[in-house]
Design a protein around this nucleic acid. Structure first.
Length: 350
DNA sequence: AAGCCTAGCAACCGCAGTCGG
DNA sequence: ACCGACTGCGGTTGCTAGGCT
């Protein structure tokens, strides 16, 4: 599941490899349909491209072409991109027209260099959602996903790679990730909690790196430095005052996460002996498959952990709904109703 | 001045997801 | 439930301008 400790590439992976936490409600609602569609999509590979066989122009757009496109869209809207080139008198693929419009010609496009605020937002959002450029762009009015992607690839990525050597804390995070990787073979609840923790650790690692690569990262560095402590509710509270969507870190460091950790620790004490300080989730989430544990205590501990976990999920859902209400359109989790359907909730992580 | 190198960015490509028939 | 058309998205490519030798 995870690269071996010491592999810095892990830090460039999306913070959330499990898409269910990223884009989601439709996935939960139609999980079975999605699986079917993926099978169909796989079968449909090799389908002829939309622009095949036509002598359509490619490459840079001319001012005349831009004018044709702008005039047409402003007069008729951008309803059908397939038909638009023909109707607008353009010898272009509809896909090319759409791209040109959305990335360059749209009137609400904001040109020019990124502001410090935008830079900070990009860093924090990327730490949470990874290369979900459209999600990041949705939080930055006037910026396109393509622009942010280019900005990341040319500026931020370079800064990150330069800063990696200065981030010894990352090693510890990676070790923790490795232990989590070993832990996820247990119950669904355990796997899911491990994935929450994995996301948090990866975000933490990113922010730790970022704090050394940007002068703007004062806020993020304070989070990164303190997030592994359960007594950092204040940091989360500080963070709550701004609009930063580092929701996982905030959630984990908030009273919600704190209460979850405490209750999980209680479950661990009930169910088994300690397994080392990095094994919070692994040890509390599901009992070890050891011969010297009675089946009854295993079942009891697992049930308690599952109950605690569900409480955490419920609280998390409330927190995220509040967040969603404030920021709109940034769905990190499915609705509370769907969260309640734990069998569905676990399914995409298998 | 010419050639080379590099960063930045617009555009393309192909897969994934959605929707309507 | 299925299928195909259409749209969205992320990765990648390749052009261009500017800096350097």
């Amino acid at each position: 599941m995870h690269p071996p400790p010491g592999d810095h590439k892990i830090l460039l992976l999306p913070a959330l490899r499990f898409p269910a936490l990223v884009s989601l409600s439709p996935l939960w609602q139609q999980i079975a349909a999605v699986i079917r569609r993926r099978k169909r999509a796989a079968a449909a590979m090799g389908r002829t491209p939309c622009c095949d066989g036509k002598a359509l122009k490619k490459g840079p757009w001319t001012p005349d072409e831009d004018k044709l496109l702008v005039d047409y869209v402003q007069a008729n809207g951008s309803g059908n991109w397939r038909l638009l080139p023909k109707l607008a008198g353009l010898n272009r693929c509809g896909k090319s027209c759409r791209l040109r419009w959305t990335n360059y010609l749209r009137p609400d496009i904001k040109r020019g260099p990124f502001t410090p605020e935008e830079h900070k937002s990009i860093l924090q959002l990327h730490a949470i959602v990874g290369n979900k450029w459209s999600m990041i762009a949705a939080q930055l009015p006037g910026r396109t996903d393509n622009e942010i992607k280019n900005y990341w690839n040319t500026n931020v990525k370079k800064q990150l790679s330069q800063g990696q050597a200065q981030a010894p804390a990352v090693i510890g995070v990676q070790a923790a990730l490795a232990s989590l990787g070993a832990a996820v073979a247990g119950s669904p609840a355990a796997r899911h909690m491990a994935q929450w923790e994995t996301a948090r650790l990866e975000a933490e690692a990113r922010l730790s790196l970022l704090s050394g690569t940007t002068s703007l990262a004062g806020t993020t560095s304070s989070v990164a430095a303190s997030s592994s402590s359960s007594s950092t509710v204040a940091a989360g509270a500080d963070h709550a005052s701004d609009a930063s969507p580092d929701i996982y870190l905030r959630l984990w460091n908030s009273e919600v996460g704190d209460s979850f950790r405490k209750s999980s620790a209680g479950s661990a004490a009930r169910g088994e002996a300690a397994h080392g300080d990095e094994g919070l989730l692994a040890s509390s989430a599901f009992p070890p498959s050891r011969d010297d544990s009675s089946a009854a205590s295993i079942v009891t501990a697992a049930a308690a952990a599952a109950d605690d976990y569900q409480v955490f999920l419920d609280l998390a859902a409330e927190e995220l709904e509040l967040f969603h209400g404030r920021h709109g359109g940034f769905a990190l989790l499915p609705s509370t109703d769907l969260l309640a359907e734990t069998s569905l909730y676990y399914a995409p992580f298998d």
